Amino acid sequence: MRRPRFTPARRRRDRRLARRVPAKSGRRRASSVTVAGADVVLVGYFSAKQKDFDTVMASAAGEVAGLGGRVVERMVQRRGVSDGGVQKMGLPYSSRTLLSHGKIREVIQACDRTDADVVVFVASLTGHQRCVLTATLGRPAVSLSDILPEPSS
């Protein structure tokens, strides 16, 4: 007697988005990186739709100078419009580094050329991005919101 052939049910891949669990104690702060007395490379990531990026970069440089840092280089990554790129305008080039590989190389060269101590990103960075960028750049990488003092309420 021949046994019926057993075919296991195909598992479906869950296509629902994972839920993010909010932090319990408010906003998490970066490790104690201070820009007072440090040479800073300021990096901004902007979409092509945002026309006032020069103003945002100047404001960020003023914030860093107000904290005692010296901006030695400003670098901007702009997300251009290409075929099919309009839908991806809000997304970074790389979820690990926020920037393209070529721009990362340019930031490394600028840091080496200017002997910068810290790299400050105008955009918010996740903890993983902060770790990857710090390892890649060879110096602390933080977002501007991480180094600004918290407003007193």
Rank of each mutant, 00 (worst) to 15 (best):
Leu98His: 10
Gly85Tyr: 10
Arg96Gly: 09
Thr97Cys: 05
Lys103Gln: 11
Ser100Cys: 03
Ile108Lys: 05
Val81Gln: 12
Val107Trp: 02
Met75Tyr: 12
Ser82Cys: 02
Ile104Leu: 06
Gly80Leu: 13
Leu99Cys: 07
Ser59Gly: 04
Ala61Glu: 11
Met89Pro: 08
Ala61Val: 10
Ser82Gln: 04
Gly68Ile: 10
His101Ala: 15
Arg105Leu: 07
Ala65Cys: 09
Gly80His: 12
Leu91Trp: 08
Ala65Arg: 11
Thr97Ser: 07
Ser100Glu: 07
Arg78Gln: 05
Gly102Asp: 15
Ala110Gln: 01
Ser59Gln: 06
Lys103Val: 11
Arg70Trp: 03
Gln87Glu: 15
Arg74Met: 12
Arg96Thr: 15
Met75Val: 08
Leu98Ser: 11
Gln77Leu: 05
Ser95Thr: 09
Tyr93Trp: 14
Ile104Arg: 05
Ile108Leu: 11
Gly85Ala: 01
Gly66Glu: 15
Ile104Phe: 02
Ser59His: 05
Ser100Leu: 01
Arg96Leu: 12
Tyr93Ala: 10
Glu106Ile: 08
Asp83Lys: 14
Gln87Cys: 14
Ile108Ser: 03
Glu73Asn: 13
Ala110Arg: 00
Gly85Val: 05
Arg105Lys: 11
Val64Arg: 00
Val64His: 01
Leu98Asp: 11
Met75Gly: 04
Gly102Glu: 14
Pro92Arg: 01
Met57Gly: 00
Leu91Gln: 09
Gly62His: 06
Gly85Cys: 03
Val64Lys: 00
Gly85Pro: 10
Gln87Ser: 15
Arg105Asn: 06
Val76Pro: 08
Glu63Val: 05
Ala61Gln: 10
Ser95Val: 10
Ile104Ala: 03
Leu67Glu: 02
Arg79Ser: 05
Gly102His: 14
Ser100Thr: 04
Ser95Asn: 15
Ile104Asp: 00
Gln87Phe: 15
Pro92Cys: 03
Ser59Ala: 01
Ala60Gln: 02
Arg70Ala: 00
Ser95Pro: 10
Val81His: 08
Gln109Arg: 14
Ser100Asp: 10
Ser100Val: 00
Ser95Phe: 12
Ala110Trp: 02
Arg79Trp: 02
Gly66Leu: 11
Gly68Asp: 13
Ala61Tyr: 04
Arg74Gln: 14
Ala61Lys: 08
Ala65Leu: 09
Arg78His: 08
Ser94Arg: 01
Gly80Cys: 13
Gly85His: 07
Gly80Trp: 14
Gly66Trp: 08
Glu63Asn: 13
Glu106Gly: 07
Gly66Asn: 14
Met75Cys: 05
Val72Arg: 00
Ser95Lys: 15
Lys88Phe: 10
Leu99Ser: 02
Gln77Lys: 12
Gly102Pro: 06
Gly85Phe: 03
Gly69Pro: 00
Glu106Tyr: 06
Gly69Leu: 08
Gln77Cys: 09
Arg79Glu: 05
Ala58Thr: 10
Ser94Glu: 05
Arg74Gly: 04
Arg105Asp: 06
Glu63Pro: 05
Ile108Gly: 01
Arg96Trp: 13
Met75Gln: 08
Leu98Asn: 12
Ala58Glu: 12
Val107His: 03
Arg70Val: 07
Ser82His: 02
Leu99Ala: 12
Asp83Glu: 15
Thr97Trp: 02
Gly84Ile: 13
Glu63Gln: 15
Ala60Trp: 02
Gly84Gln: 08
Thr97Ile: 02
